[in-house]
Amino acid sequence: MGKPDADGPGLPDLPPEWGRVVVPDDASALAAEAEQLRRELGGTPLRAVPPPPARSPFALALLVLLVAVLTTLAGLAAVIWPRPGRSTPEPSPTPYAPAGAAGRPLPALDLVDAGQSPVPLRGLVPAMIILVDGCPCPADVATAAALAPAGVTVVTVAGTRPVRATPPPAGATVRPLADPAGGLRSFLHLPARPGAVTALLVDRSGVLVKVVPEIHSAEDYRADLTRLAA
Score class of each variant (00 low, 15 high):
R86P: 00
R55W: 13
P89L: 01
P93H: 02
A77S: 08
L70I: 15
V23P: 01
E40S: 08
L37A: 11
E33A: 13
D25W: 10
L63R: 03
A31F: 04
D13C: 04
L11I: 00
A31I: 04
L73E: 05
P57W: 03
I80Q: 07
D26K: 07
L11R: 13
P24Q: 03
R39W: 10
R86K: 05
T88M: 06
W18S: 07
V23R: 15
V23S: 12
A78N: 11
A6G: 05
G2C: 04
A32I: 12
A54K: 08
P51S: 10
V21D: 02
G75D: 10
P4C: 11
G75R: 10
P57H: 02
L37I: 05
P16F: 09
R55N: 08
A54P: 08
G2Q: 12
L76C: 06
V79H: 11
S28E: 11
V69F: 03
V79I: 14
Q36T: 11
D5M: 15
I80S: 07
L73W: 13
E33K: 13
L46T: 13
P91K: 06
P24I: 04
L11T: 09
R20A: 04
P82N: 11
P9R: 15
P15N: 02
F58Q: 13
G42W: 03
T88A: 12
M1A: 15
S87Y: 02
G75I: 11
L11C: 04
E33V: 13
P91H: 01
L37G: 04
P16K: 09
L62G: 11
V67A: 13
E90P: 01
L30I: 03
P52I: 05
P53K: 07
A6Y: 01
R55P: 15
T72E: 08
V21Q: 10
R86E: 04
A32Q: 12
P9Y: 11
P84A: 15
P91Y: 03
S28A: 13
I80C: 03
A27D: 09
P4N: 12
A68F: 11
S28P: 00
E40G: 09
P9I: 07
A77L: 15
P16G: 14
R83T: 08
A77E: 00
P52L: 02
E40N: 06
P50N: 05
V67W: 07
M1G: 14
